[in-house]
Design a protein around this nucleic acid. Structure first.
Lengths: 252, 252
DNA sequence: ACTTGGTGTTCTTCCAGGAAGAATCCTCCT
DNA sequence: AGGAGGATTCTTCCTGGAAGAACACCAAGT
């Protein structure tokens, strides 16, 4: 292990050590954290609330502190700065044409991380989800990205046994349907009153599985508009894919 | 997202935001980090060196900062406090009987996290590795834990394409041999002059794949002692496994 | 119902540490 | 060799991080 930096920052050190203890050992109470770090209980409490605030910690059912979403989810498989840069203009166009919020997300293990969002202008709208991490099978763009994987790869991402709330056999059947119809639908799976329709984006990279979606209040969802929305999102996905390949060509 | 805590800690907030930017977006230079956070370059530099020190960041080949091991590796699948508590006395016994350092590790995706270590008393010895995270296929206890998985599960953990330094077909053949002979050997794969011999620990939990190992300077490795070491580590693994099941029985 | 002990949370105070800016060092390109 | 840009180190100052006190909450025991 490296030596401690000459101009180290104590408060940062406490926070990062605490985060690793949570990641490695599991639930911790405030007083235990204070003991482990050698700080006062009030200090430990402040550190823990900062970790919760920035998603490095969460509270379990017994209100103890556990590793949070940031520590549960590995980094994206490849840097997404270029993907964002290429995709954002297309998401702007998509949001303008459909008057609904659009999102882009990257599959990370069995979760999906939202890496770009464009909000629509309507007063009632789905907000920016950038930075959020959700179970992949619940989000439409997550389901769309999962559908690009072989069934065994999906099974392995969820592990064995899979989480209690996941029926893997049913999910795989659903993903088959997503592949056939070319889009995935999330009817209020992630949040009451929110509906999203998503499809996969071909990045040309086996490591980077990406989906995009239109999200809207369920009140604005119309069965007879699904065709139109599907055409819009798949055209956007194709445009992003084309520009990514163009960039790869120029860089190559 | 939650509101900022009333008694928030600014320096901690900067550090955690920086860590999430690295995890989400990829390589960043010091001056870019300063810009993103709205702090001076010297401040950004101090924050980044703290993140590197505690394994939340690393430097890439162009010396830019990227997400580090802590952010690449999800939390262990289950809290390991009990596993540690149960295992440590057995690791003490093993180290005493063999006069070599012993380790316990948990598989996390394609890596293995060292969660308990007992150092031997010899002047030349392998040090404590607790908290370290290594590619699973390089560590003997990682290979032993991988060998408890089905081949497709191994493939999926490494992803497609696998990292350039991993020959998955060869690794799967090696894991077959590990299963047959009951132990894995690491001949200086993780560090020059270090040899380790490991085996799996049956935790009774499909989610928690665990291995243990004896590690020694290569100078003390003896082919004719492998049988003795193998018996020692598998007896220790069986004892840990028995005590875990006993605890599960008492808790149930 | 009351008491006790332990833990979590909030608030205040003080001084040491975090932040910026300057200076220096390093690397890459011309 | 020189210049530009970025990284790193050092110093100074003032403000924010840390502790301690006080309070709140909860569970267990009587």
């Amino acid at each position: 292990m490296e030596n401690r930096p000459v101009y180290g920052i104590n408060s940062v050190d406490h926070a990062l050590r605490l985060a690793t203890i949570l990641q490695q050992e599991g639930p911790l109470r405030v007083s235990e954290a204070a003991e482990r770090l050698g700080v006062a209980r009030s200090t430990a409490h402040r550190l823990l609330t900062m970790l919760v605030y920035r998603d490095f910690a969460a509270r379990d059912a017994q209100r103890r502190y556990v590793a949070g979403p940031v520590l549960h989810t590995p980094a994206v498989p490849e840097p997404v700065a270029e993907l964002r840069q290429v995709a954002l203009p297309h998401l702007h166009d998509l949001t303008e044409r459909t008057a609904e919020t659009s999102h882009l997300g990257v599959l990370v293990a069995d979760r999906v991380r939202f890496v770009a969002s464009v909000e629509c202008d309507q007063v009632l709208r789905v907000g920016d989800r950038e930075g959020r991490v959700l179970p992949a099978h619940l989000a439409s763009l997550g389901r769309a990205a999962l559908a690009t994987l072989e069934p065994d790869a999906v099974r392995a991402r969820y592990g064995e046994p899979a989480p209690a709330d996941v029926d893997l056999d049913q999910l795989l059947r659903d993903l088959g349907r997503v592949r056939r119809q070319g889009y995935a639908l999330n009817q209020q799976l992630t949040e009451t009153g929110l509906t999203a329709i998503g499809c996969a984006v071909d990045t040309g990279s086996g490591a980077l599985r990406v989906g995009l979606s239109l999200a809207m209040p369920t009140a604005r969802y119309r069965r007879d508009r699904v065709g139109e929305w599907t055409r819009s999102i798949t055209a956007t996905a194709a445009a992003i894919s084309r520009d990514l390949h163009l960039n790869a060509g120029l860089a190559g």
